[in-house]
Design a binder for these strands. Sequence first.
DNA 1: CTAGACCCTTGAGCTAGGTCGAGAGTCAAG
DNA 2: CTTGACTCTCGACCTAGCTCAAGGGTCTAG
Lengths: 138, 138
Amino acid sequence: MTTQTSLTIGRIAQSAGVAIDTIRFYEREGLLPEPRRRPSGYREYDASAVSRLRFIRRAKDLGFTLEEIRELLALSADRHVGVEGVRERAAARLKAIDDRIAELQRVRDGLAELVEACPGHGAPEDCPILNALAEPNP
Amino acid sequence: MTTQTSLTIGRIAQSAGVAIDTIRFYEREGLLPEPRRRPSGYREYDASAVSRLRFIRRAKDLGFTLEEIRELLALSADRHVGVEGVRERAAARLKAIDDRIAELQRVRDGLAELVEACPGHGAPEDCPILNALAEPNP
DNA sequence: CTAGACCCTTGAGCTAGGTCGAGAGTCAAG
DNA sequence: CTTGACTCTCGACCTAGCTCAAGGGTCTAG
């Protein structure tokens, strides 16, 4: 038999490394199921809530939005198309990250060129950075 | 002599490719100087306002925040330490972008590994993605 | 002169993901 | 029983960078 653990919101916040307010926020947002309550109204959790919170945190670290995480959580409970869906979402996220990196790289290179060309002194009109920012075309 | 052009907010918005509301917003935020007004209250701009708007747009594309752009604009008018300051800010921005790219790359690699390891079918317990998200350590 | 396009101000709302405060009730140790 | 830590709800606020609505005045072509 499984031991029925009973954790307060403060305890799971501590275990999962998130703020109490964040947990209540996730509950409102449907990322966490509404937990049972003590007669006093206190929320009562078991260990699975901690896993779920960690799941959310990990996914967030991977750049998923809360909306996407909601989907992942739904899929993770689906024994039929769940894994397929999860893989799809992860692949999509991966592509989004790749796109973002490519975009940043483009910006980075443009900026690096300007910084290298700039002597760091002299008249504003001779600064390639300022000139690039001010020039009329595109 | 320079021809005194007189442009309405709609015209410079058009020329610079930004929304009218955005221009008024920039004015409130101190990115654009308060223009002179017609007796009716209409704002009157000259061509330099368009340059300035383009400057802002370019800088934004390079990832500068409006706060940073305010600084750049101030520096660009400074004939003494202006160029030095601009170069410093640009270098700092470059470093921030590099850091961000490195961070994204890290996330990307982690995610790519999981996606590759995931068969895309089978039981949720066998999905490396779900397992990685749910596992108890850090 | 009039219609329609343009402009004015003030103030609110939006996104995403929380974060905080007030005011009140509850729990556990001593 | 008391005290201090914990929890409850509700609602407001935060960042950044806009974006929109309401209600009104202005400009210009015909």
